[in-house]
Amino acid sequence: MSSPLLCLNDLTSGYGSAAVLHDISLEVDRARIVAVLGKNGMGKSTLLKTIMGFVRPMSGRIMFGEEDMTNVGPNRMVRAGVAHAPQEHTLFPDLTVEDNLRLGVISDRLFRQRLPEIEAVFPRMIERLRQSAGTLSGGEQKMLLMSRVLIAQPKIVLVDEISEGLQPTMVNRMAEALIRARDELGIAVLLVEQHLSFALSVADQVAMMKLGEIVERGTPQELGEGDRLAAHLAV
C-alpha cells in the first residue's frame, strides 16, 4: 500500500486565538470509512472545516495523497477530490434539486453522465428534479445532500452529522448510501457523528473526540462494540 489518502499530522486549529482542536493526528485510507465520535461542542465540525480550508490551522499538517494541503482554500480542496457534506448551510433552498446537483459537479456533461447513479440509490430525487430544495422534507434534504456527494464522486467525502434529526429508517438509508459509496465507487469517508450505532454500523475505524482531542481509537470490534464509547458520549 502507498501512503494514506488523507493524513492529518498534529493538527491544531480554532477561531481567533482560541484553539478548538489540539494536536489531532488521523489517517484515512482509500475506500475506507473513518468515524470521529463526540458530543456537541467537542470540535468535530471544526475538524472538517479545517480540512476543507474554511478554518486555517494554527499548526500541524494536512496531507492529501502526496501533496501538502495545509493552507489551501476550499476550492483547491474540492478540485483535488475532497467533498464536504456540512451540517449547516447544506443546500441552496431556493434552487431546484437539479441545480443543487449540478453544483456538485464541475461540468454539466458529467452531471448528465452520473445522474443514473443517483437514480439507483435515491430514485425520489430524480422525481423531484424541478422542485426547489427548500420545499423538500428534512429527510429528503439529507438525501439530496448525499446525492450531491455521490454525483461529485470525490476521492474522499467529509460528512458532518448526517444522521441528526433523521428517523431510524432514513438513518439506515444513509448508512447504505455511504457503504455503497465506499464499496462501489471507492470513495473514502470521514464521518463525524454523535449517533453511535449508526457510526459503528458503517465505520472501519473509529476515533473518539473529547474537548478537541482524540482520546481513543480503533476498529469497532476493538472498542468492544461501543460500550466504552457510549460512556464517552454520556455525561
Binding site: M52, F54, G73, P74, N75, M77, V78, R79, H84, P86, H89, T90, L91, F92, D94, L95, L103, G104, I106, R148
Partner: peptide, 13 residues
C-alpha cells in the same frame, strides 16, 4: 445565495 456553501462546492467565488 450562500457564499460559504458555494465555496464548499469548489466554486472559486
Amino acid at each position: 445565495m450562500d457564499e460559504t456553501l458555494a465555496r464548499g462546492l469548489g466554486i472559486d467565488s
